[in-house]
Each structure stands twice: as C-alpha cells, then as structure tokens.
Design a protein around this nucleic acid. Structure first.
Lengths: 345, 345
DNA sequence: GGTATTTCTGAAAACGTTTGCATAAAATTA
DNA sequence: TAATTTTATGCAAACGTTTTCAGAAATACC
C-alpha cells in the first residue's frame, strides 16, 4: 500500500540549531553574503555538508522572487537546429547559475498556450520561445512582459510584440542565396517547397525567392510554389505533382532539409539524376544532408550563435545591468546565414 | 538603468478581497475540492480569469510539498534515441498534469552531479536519469531515495542502486543478434567497435558479441575489439587500424550508429565496397542509417516503449497507488530490441 | 578610558499557498 | 420546534527561506 510521508529533509533551521545560531545567520553564510564571520561561515558550510542540506528552491524563490530558472518553449527538441540552440543556451545559462526548463509544444498552439501558463506559474525569471508554425495570437506572452519578465523569441518569431526581444536568422537572404545559387548553376525552371505563410520564416524565404527570380529575369510558375507543413510526406506529394506533367522543373528550393531529403529520395525513385536532371537545395544544414548521396546543398543557420546571443543579452537583463526597456525597442538581432555547397547542385 | 521592481501579480488574496471571501475558500474553489458552493466556485473562477490570476507554483509547492515537476538528466538531447524517449515521457507526463525539467549532462560526471543537486533543490517529485558513460558512483542519487523521491534509470543504468527502478533495452540480446546476423550473412572475421566498459550498455553488448562468436565457433581477434568513446573520429581511427594490416575483417559490429556511419564513410574512402568487402551493422536505428547509401542494418531500441513504460510506472507511484518499496525490488524492465535488416549486410 | 565606528548576529516579518480546526449556515431528522 | 447532521466558510498556522531592523560585540580612534 501507499506510504505517503516523505522523509524529513534538513532545513536551514536544523543547521542553526546544531550550531546555536539563528536561521538568518545560516542563510547569510550559505549565500556568501558580507557580514558573517569567517569561522561562522566555515562552521555552517561544514554542518550543511554533514547534514546533507540542500536549499529548498521553492522557499527561496517564494521569498526572494527569483527562481534562477529560465523557461523555454520549442516545437520539438528533435529538430537539429533547435537541439543545437537549446544545448548552447543551457550550457551557457548554467555557467551563470541559471537552469533551463525545456518544454515542447509539438507545434500545437493549444499546447504552447498551456506551457506558457505553466511556466508563468513557475515564475521563471525569463522566457525563450520558438513559436509553433501557426502562432498568430501572441497574447499568452503578454503576461510575462507585463510582469517585467524578459521574453525572447527566436527563429519563429512574432512581428509585433511590444517589449519582447527577437533573435532570428536572415531568412530573406537565405531564400535569396539559395535561389541565386540554383540559377548560377544553370537552373531556369525553379520550384519552391515552402512552409505555411503564417510563419515568418516562410514569408521571408519566399520573399527572397521572388526577389532572386525577379532579379535574374526568371518567370515564377505559381503551380510550382507550395506552402504546406514541411513534412516528408508533403514533400513527396509535391514532387509527384511537379513531375506528373511534362513541364518539369530543373531546380528545387526546399525550405527545410527533411523536405530536401524526401524530395531527393523521390527523385531517385522515379529515375531522375540529381544534380544533372534536377538540382536540390535545402535549409538548415541538418547533419543528414551531408550523409546522403548525393550530399545536399543547404543553408547554415549557426544555431550556436543564435543560442549564445540570446544568453548574452538575457544575462545582462537578469543581472539588471540593462532593463527591458533598454533593449526591447532595439531592432531584432539578425544572425547571418551561409550557403553550404554540396553535390546536389 | 536597471529597473528592479517587478509588477505586482495578483494573488489568491486579491480574488478573496474582490469577492469578500477568505483565501481558504478561494484556494479550495480553485483546486476543485469538495465543500464549496457551486456559485462560489463560479464566482472565484470568473474573478481569477478577470484578474489574470496564475497560481504561484513556489508557494503552492512549498506548502503542499508537491511540485508536479519531474526532473530528467540525459547525456545529450541531440541523440536520437534520447530525444524520442524524452518526447514520449514529456507528452505522457503532461497528460497527467506533470511537467518535465530536462537537463543535459554532456556526458560529464561533474555536470551530472551538479544537476542532481539542482533538481533536488527544486524538490522534483521524481527523477529520471540516463547516466553518463562514466558514472560509477551513484551516491548523488541516494539523497532522492532517502527522501522517498522515486528514481528511474533508463538506458545507461547502475547495477546496484537499492530502491531505484530500472528500465533498459535488451543489450545482451542486441549484441548477440547483431553478430549472429553478420555471421549468417557470411562473415567469418568480425571486428567490434564498442564503448567504455564502465557503461552497462557496452558490457552487455560485448557479452552478446562473445556469446554469438563462441556459439558459432568463430575465434575472436582481440586486436579487433575497441572500447572507446563512440565518436565518429574514434571510429575512423579504429577503421584505420583495422585496415592498415593485410589481415582485415569482413564484418564490423559497431555499438552505435554514429560509429557505423563514420566507418561506412571511411570504408568508402579507402575503396572498400559495403557490403561486398565489409558488412557493417550499427545500433539504435538512428534515422540517418536509413538515408545513407548503402543503408545500414541496425538494432531498433523502441524509445517510445521505454518512455511509455517509465511514465506508466511513475504515475502509479506519484498517485500513491504503489509505493517505492513495492516495485524497487522487482527485476529491471527489459524492453525488447529488434534487428532492422538493410543494405549494409 | 570613553566614544565612534565597524562587524557580526538574532528577532521577526514577510513571500503566497494549503489545510486542520472551529464555527456558522443550511438541511435533515425526530 | 428542537436536536442533529451535513455543508460551506473563515481563522490561523504552517511550509523554508530571505531580509529589514535593531542591538550586541568587537575594533578603531582620540
């Protein structure tokens, strides 16, 4: 049967009692504050060690209104780009004594909203978010800003959330570079498999696409433009549609690497030679793109730079070296991208 | 300059005041307890909504000694197997109202220990751990068990931690199946790239390796056995050593997929044909193994089953339907594995 | 030696909940 | 109607810290 009582844990008072001190002094000793005798501090630390004392984060946080925890909401941790960003953020925050609470929205708006509430309940000291593909209502995040809790968006970001900080890639340029590269390698008829236009990423990459096409005087065939969730299945379906008529593209720009891979596999299956018959370019520099044959040209997004930039700015805020109002009006941080040339183009 | 004051957040008392009720009643209404009039509850919920009230998790946790948060420590979230396990755990815990605090040890013992302390400080309701490759001292976890906080180990697990629950794959059988498969496809001279023997995974897979070799009457060439961290660089180095003499293997069993991929690439570079000259088998069924040419035979570990099993048992404990002592003595849960045949063998 | 300053420590009040106990109000029974 | 039970609410004490304020002890100054 169930045994409910949790064993008693030692508190600051147990240390105080054992040393005939007050809780206040013990607290000060443990927190390395001024005004506590060297010997007292040593005694306290030794006794804490002996009793196996661990600070109760809830009591501490309740009183001091600091949790030393940052919340993070991300569509999925299994996406290479996000996994890298998260790792960088976590390792750097840890250096400054902060913890990260990682949550996955599974790209669902309702889940994202729920996680937002939970993280607010946990009174995280800051929030970092990469939105779902479909987030257009950003009101769930307002509550943080109203309470002066810093909010950072990265990658998939809102256009207008007053007071939030934005760090994103140069997706316009990424889309532009990708298409320009296809054109330079000889493509004349270029298709584009992109994501939902509710998301800034695909708005921007599409804009880059159109700009490059126009600049090189190439017509855009609107039947070759797809805006859909970037799943392998959708990419295959798009490929099927592209190659069922006899008017077929010689270049394919996909807005993520999973789609590029799926497209490449499909091309292989229907007997197309890549890059001879069809050139393919992806986006993100997922490790899989360098493993597949032929390896896929793609756009590097430098997730480590994204993560580092977020933490650097965040720590300044958390240390009160800057206030939210100091940086919220600043323009978004744009992390440069880079074309990675491989065998598929 | 820094603005320190955080805007006032509404508390249970604000709701109470607004409705001329006591904090106690508001608390009961919000928590859906018995003994509160229907109308009162509705009033409270409405007012909470109106004031944008969000429970302060720290105050609640401090008082009730429940955080509804589970801690998780994992070497890296970017490893496919772990990412899958985590996602399953998180989604299932969420259904039961629990949150997951995900931490990465980066495969460093010191980091693992530190994270353990932090999660204890946060008073998580349970702890789930996949150890580092090098963890042999499990005393940092004792503190949880002494406090009746459930501890689950999965994948990389300790041998003897009294009271902890263990969920792992059938690595012995995995190693055995892998080698048996190589033998069945005609290999006579089999090499093994394995991990550090401080880790149960590689002990078990090695045991399976030896058992299969012995059972088929094949001699083991000890020069072809590697125990090292399973990085791509180490795999390449092992390959170099294997193929610098003229006595070379015709089968290679690697204990993770990254090594299998690196080995395959190396083989390709030195002009070996896989599978004709060398057959390669990996471990984990990382998506990359099905993308590479030739696709790599590997062992599926069913991360979703691992995650599901952990949550199912954990929820029983957290609901006090079972007590730790009920299941801690039970034998470890062993999740079956499965051979995935592909083109590399 | 007396005073002013600095250094150290303790008492007590917060922080926002939950919960045991008591009581008031309502419903039921005799 | 009175006595009893049930239902609904409030009071006040926790939970384990941090922090303000004040006072005690130690040191410095004259």
């Amino acid at each position: 049967m169930a045994k409910n009582k949790r064993a008693q844990q030692n508190t600051i008072l147990d240390i105080a009692d054992a040393l005939k001190l007050s809780a206040a002094t013990v607290s000060r000793a443990l927190n390395g504050q001024i005004h506590v005798k060297e010997k007292t501090r040593n005694d306290v630390l030794k006794m804490a060690e002996k009793l196996g004392y661990r600070r109760n984060q809830m009591a501490s946080g309740l009183r001091s209104n600091k949790t030393y925890t940052v919340g993070l909401i991300v569509p999925r941790i299994s996406m290479f780009f996000h996994a890298e960003v998260i790792t960088t953020i976590q390792n750097n925050l840890h250096k400054h004594g902060y913890n990260l609470m990682i949550c996955q929205s599974n790209d669902e708006i309702s889940m994202e909203k729920e996680l937002t509430e939970i993280l607010f309940s946990s009174r995280v000291d800051a929030l970092i978010v990469a939105c779902t593909l479909f987030t257009t209502d950003f009101s769930p995040f307002h509550k943080f800003l109203e309470s002066d809790v810093p909010v950072f968006f990265y990658d998939r970001v809102p256009l207008n959330v007053q007071g939030a900080r934005i760090v994103r890639g140069d997706d316009q340029r990424g889309g532009y570079l990708a298409v320009s590269h296809l054109i330079e390698t000889g493509c004349k008829n270029i298709a584009h498999i992109s994501g939902p236009l509710s998301c800034n990423l695909y708005q921007d990459r599409s804009a880059g696409f159109y700009r490059a096409m126009e600049q090189h005087g190439l017509p855009v065939n609107e039947n070759w433009i797809f805006h859909q969730e970037l799943t392998p299945a959708n990419a295959r379906e798009a490929m099927r549609r592209l190659f069922e008529s006899k008017d077929v593209p010689d270049g394919l720009c996909t807005d993520n690497d999973s789609s590029a891979i799926a497209a490449l596999e499909y091309a292989r299956e229907i007997g197309l030679h890549v890059p001879k018959d069809l050139k393919i370019i992806g986006y993100s520099n997922d490790p899989r793109t360098s493993i597949i044959t032929p390896s896929i040209t793609t756009i590097e997004q430098f997730p480590n730079q994204v993560g580092k930039k977020i933490v650097d700015e965040l720590i300044e805020l958390l240390r009160n070296e800057k206030s939210i109002s100091d940086i919220a009006d600043a323009p978004p941080v744009i992390i440069p991208i880079e074309l990675i040339r491989r065998m598929s183009t």
